[in-house]
Design a protein around this nucleic acid. Sequence first.
RNA 1: GCGCCUAUAGCUCAACUGGAUAGAGCGACGGACUUCGGAUCCGUUGGUUGCGGGUUCGAAUCCUGCUAGGCGCGCCA
Length: 544
Amino acid sequence: MIIEQIKRSVRESLQNSFREMDISIDIIRSPQEFGDLCTTIPFKVAKILRKPPYEIADKICENISSGLFSSISVSKPGYINFTLSSDAWRMFLSELEAKGEDYYRKESNGIRFQVEFVSANPTGPLHVGNGRGGIIGDVLANLLSLQGFNVEREYYVNDAGSKMDLFAQSILYYYLLTFNKESSFPEDGYRGEYIKDIASDIAKSFGDKFINMDRKVALSEVKKIGKEMMIDSIKKSLEDFGVHFDNWFYESSLYESGELEETLRLFRNTPHTYEKDGAIWFKSTLFSDDKDRVLVRSTGEPTYILSDAAYHYNKWKRGFRRVVDVWGADHFGHIVPMKALIKGMGIPDDFLEIIIYQMVHLYEDGTEVTMSKHTGTFFTLEELINEVGKDAARVFFLLKSADTHLNFDINLAKSKSMDNPIYYLKYTYARLKGILREGDLRNISYSGAESLDLSTIQTQEERELMTSLIFVEESLNNAAKNYAVHEVPFFTIDLARKINAFYQKYRVLSPGKEMQGRLALVNASLIVLSILFDIMGIEKVERM
RNA sequence: GCGCCUAUAGCUCAACUGGAUAGAGCGACGGACUUCGGAUCCGUUGGUUGCGGGUUCGAAUCCUGCUAGGCGCGCCA
């Protein structure tokens, strides 16, 4: 790929000028008057050598010999500016045309990489907050996959803890109520409408069979049925949202397989556990936690700390060497304990990375609505998708960086007048397709980059478009490196803007020497847009 | 009290992780097609980057002291 080649060329000349300098090369876009691209490498070298950046830039430039650039210059404090040559353009276009949709896909690095996300308890339907986690994980997995990782997406189903018991008790309460039997409602139980729906569904399908049953047995049955229904609903929402998982991992399977005990033994064999007040503790303070954590309660019940340890140990055993967990900010407090567990098990530090996304706040009629499964007040992901459509919903979440708080206005979402650039993107793609359709009617076709006269591409709009297309490679690198999925729609919109500026000003299908060059730009834009749409998981339309 | 996130144009958000004159959309105002899709394009307007210090060639970004909001700090997950 072209940016990769540019970096290699800069690196070579850097090391020719300054032996032993091994720093990663940055390539950024230049302001218009300074060419197409530039690097700030001289500043980095200047810091190390304590010499003026301008001198260093000059020295590096002396050693750059590359057909990729038609001109190289040094400006002000020490930038090196590059103007791309027509050879560079041709290389880019040829490779893009040859590889098509696979252009940005790097060779496999053999590393198994797991992205775990959403992982909401199956005690209720997904809400809009889960949608945020869903989009972050989904797009991140797409980005990492292009970077050459062998990526798997996983949903961890927390179906073993006390929340599930509470869930079952809540359902049973409403179930009994449908038969006019009063029972005590569990403390902090779930009161959402969906609980009542499940209860009445069970009453319809199973009749009164749970009324006289032993309460323990009834609860376990009801839990199983309710869980299935909830997971079905979650799966459907995710499917409607275009989010796909390779694997659904059940917490309960850790109990059944004996891995929970295995993990406990693992800890007991280290000096990092002790017993106190009848409970088994993990000395996580040894690993920079501020308090120790309970692995097994005094009742003998394991805590989620132990099952999370077992779960991550399982990931390690399955052969993943890099794992990203995507969590909502309400789980922030669990990061330090989780990392302590990893260290405590002797797994390398860089195994686990945790991405936190900030809370989604719901507003309706100008006031904040608290989202809670316990009180049953929330706006579901399903509702959002139904109101605004899958693609608009995806882009809506995608546009905010994970660490900003997201204010979600229900009225705005329902009005469908959401300020959403999804239509701009789709329109851009469709109108380019329109050119090709029209070209077919007029028997005009693009002849390919090899035989192209690139000297006809001269105007500012065309040049900027070409550079934008070329720079997408580096934008994808940065987004993947930073785990910053929100960058994708931003630079895609930026690209679309360049396309539209070009489209508006020049006729592509007007016979003349410029025509093939412009067709090359249209063709390349379509390929790149298509790839970016796929990464974001939004549909391409030929007509709107 | 401690930890993390946030504070940038009237509003919603960016800023390639320390890079060039802080940018987009929406809003407001003014322009552009007899043509391949006007769901478009071009221009104007709009800023003490929450406040005060510091670090250096260079700070929205880093260090420090504040202010305001959010989240977390269980033998809950």
